[in-house]
Design a protein around this nucleic acid. Structure first.
Lengths: 212, 212
DNA sequence: TTGGGGTAAATTGTATACAATATCTGAGTG
DNA sequence: CACTCAGATATTGTATACAATTTACCCCAA
């Protein structure tokens, strides 16, 4: 894709809005409105929408119209399951590779997380939380796995969640669990890492379900 | 998406050609050619291409042009790893659910596979092979996991492979491994299922690597 | 022969135009 | 007052047109 094509510009713009929840699920995307807003022709907008449809971030109604995809309760469950599947799988790969750099990065992210929590930067802490999980996926160096994870809306979902959960308690749990996982990775204690990650994700699901 | 929109028609058509390897990786997709071939305007073709780009089945070159995505040796490795991750994860979910219908379906697919192999329908056997793995994924009832699996090109890759591997030996191995997995699922013997699936996929990778 | 460069052809990226469809609105009717 | 249905408006789906860019081709010179 030409980096500077108009369709790409629209794609980037709309995608960002969706992933940052500025566009909420179910919202209708009107071509002409976006065309005017971004000063391009409707064709470019349509192309961008089609690409987003390919990524399942939007969908076209049977009677026309483009809508931001909704999250149902079913979705929350599916995402949680998928997430466990991907992250556990990635973690297992990390255990096989034992890449020092990844471990170091994870420790740094843990420190950042602690720092921000202690200073009350809960938004930043949430970003660090997302990054922790992304780093696990990226540590596999499997570009397809990474692409799937990023396209799965998991990070988005994660952020949306973080924006709401404000319990200090939760942040401390998260911190403890992250550190336990890194520690287990360092010592090669797979069972411990596995159990911690599962319960960590479980806790996330509970919080998610309270919102729906 | 309107089921009968022209863009959708093009999308379906091109996608089918890619997934069935009638369009090979790296092939250039010329808009006007497809527009003429399918008797639609270039706009519809472009929209279809954009959607396929969203699915990573094609990509746009930096200097313009739309190309079917290539598979590198790296891709083979990544796909294999991803596939193991997804299928093992799905299998674990199946073990938790113990859905009778899924088990029955898997057994039927095994029978079909045997039938076709014994009659020399190797193409059909290969289809059954793909279906076996897809059924495992579908058995989870996790729509996002299913979507990811289907979009991951794994089935495509599988078929491409099957078209070449002609060793009777391989088919018998496949048959035995599939049956062993189903049997383990019936008796709840996770360790056995796990080990069999891993070695089954391992064998697949070996065959794949011989082709690249 | 080969390499350069310039022109022609092909292809893409974008805008505009228009017909078809969907959605809204409001007046008239039971 | 609720309902419905005709017309008006908004929105989408598609085609065509055109400028910009890329690719192919060919001729000429080293």
């Amino acid at each position: 894709m030409k980096e500077d094509s108009l369709a790409n510009k629209v794609y980037i713009e709309v995608r960002k809005k969706i992933l940052s929840s500025q566009l909420v699920g179910g919202a209708r995307l009107v071509e002409s409105a976006w065309a005017e807003k971004l000063a391009v022709s409707r064709v470019a907008v349509r192309e961008a929408f089609m690409r987003l449809a390919g990524e399942s971030l939007v969908e076209f109604g049977e009677k026309g119209g483009c809508f931001v995809k909704k999250m149902t309760v079913e979705d929350v469950k599916d995402i949680r399951e998928l997430r466990e599947l991907l992250e556990i799988g990635a973690l297992k790969i990390l255990f096989a590779k034992r890449d020092e750099e990844v471990i170091r990065d994870l420790e740094l992210i843990c420190s950042d997380f602690s720092d921000m929590v202690s200073k009350g930067y809960y938004g930043g802490a949430c970003e660090a939380d997302v990054r922790f999980h992304e780093r696990i996926i990226e540590g596999t160096c499997n570009s397809r796995l990474i692409a799937i994870y990023k396209n799965s809306n998991i990070p988005l979902f994660h952020m949306k969640l973080g924006a709401i959960l404000g319990q200090m308690e939760d942040y401390l749990d998260t911190e403890r669990e992250h550190r336990a996982i890194v520690e287990a990775l360092k010592t090669g204690d797979w069972d411990s890492a596995y159990a911690t990650l599962v319960s960590h994700l479980d806790r996330g699901e509970q919080e998610a379900l309270e919102l729906v």
